[in-house]
Simulated assay, not measured.
Amino acid sequence: MTSTAEPTTQSVQGNKLRGRVAFVTGGTRGIGSAISRSLATQGATVAAGYARNTSQADQFLADLKANGRDDAKYSVHKGDVANAADCRRTIDEVIAEHGRLDILINNAGITIDRTVLKMEDEDWDKVISVNLSGAFYLAQAALRHMLERGTGRIVNVSSVIGETGNIGQANYAASKAGLFGLTKTLAKEATFHLGKAGLLTPDSIGVTVNTVTPGFVATEMVDSIPEKVLSRITDSIPVKRLADPQEIARVVHFLAADASSYITGQVWGVNGGLDM
């Protein structure tokens, strides 16, 4: 489960992503904000996607610029990830503004919770469209650019609910589980096309596609959870606490780095042992 609060800690600065351009969907709030900031601390130029709240996105951008590095640039891009045309447009915007796209983080996601017997058609369709179809549309557009250049990183943000299921979240669980199959297929096709083009060499960083599956994260979502319910949740987690958003973000920036070139088609659980 994920939500939309600001990260509570910051990553140590480094140069793992210096000179790289990253697009983070849902990148101005919650876990997405933590990912954007973490990529920025590693030297990446960061383009953050958002859906509706322009004033909040502008504030995020101003803060990122004020606290960011001199050797990187930052931007925000409004779009609906459930809309294929919007997905292609925002990818094109990022490339036009920053000259390239090295990293795509498919983080945007929504929940509309109801039990199966009460779920409306629109509840199912909207969650699948945003969480799964959007990731496909964005990856499809990004891959065309990455394969032409011979390098790139795609990281999908799924959820432990995609692995375990959850009462009232059939749509969300299905969409997040669908990212596993999408990840593996994209990873196989990326290496297939690079191989055909003669671009798989011993010193190439290649194009990799991986998924991160957060568990329960300490974001503003938990503010509305009754204390007794939250206590049961934390008791169910082997490490007995929620994740900090930066703990998710650090795994993402590791997978986005050039040095992760031997990791592709994998699902990385960051859930405190909740699913093991």
Score class of each variant (00 low, 15 high):
135 A>F: 06
68 G>F: 05
228 K>D: 15
148 E>M: 04
185 T>K: 05
224 S>I: 11
156 N>M: 11
241 R>A: 11
48 A>V: 01
25 T>D: 09
14 G>K: 00
196 K>C: 01
26 G>I: 00
56 Q>Y: 05
269 G>M: 09
174 A>V: 03
100 R>L: 02
22 A>H: 09
157 V>C: 08
222 V>W: 13
226 P>Y: 07
10 Q>V: 13
59 Q>S: 14
213 T>I: 04
127 V>F: 09
19 G>D: 11
67 N>P: 02
218 A>K: 11
226 P>M: 05
219 T>S: 08
256 A>L: 06
262 Y>F: 15
155 V>S: 07
176 K>L: 12
248 I>K: 04
9 T>F: 06
89 R>E: 12
235 D>Y: 02
119 M>H: 09
74 Y>S: 08
156 N>K: 10
263 I>Q: 00
51 A>G: 06
223 D>P: 02
13 Q>G: 10
143 L>Y: 02
19 G>H: 14
249 A>V: 08
267 V>P: 01
190 A>H: 10
28 T>V: 12
170 A>L: 08
165 G>E: 04
114 R>M: 09
78 K>I: 04
50 Y>V: 09
50 Y>G: 09
233 I>P: 03
244 D>A: 04
97 E>F: 04
85 A>Q: 10
24 V>D: 08
212 V>D: 00
71 D>R: 00
237 I>A: 02
11 S>C: 10
205 I>M: 00
234 T>S: 04
25 T>C: 10
65 K>P: 11
125 D>S: 13
85 A>W: 05
104 L>C: 09
123 D>S: 10
5 A>L: 10
241 R>Q: 11
230 L>S: 01
220 E>H: 05
117 L>N: 02
7 P>R: 05
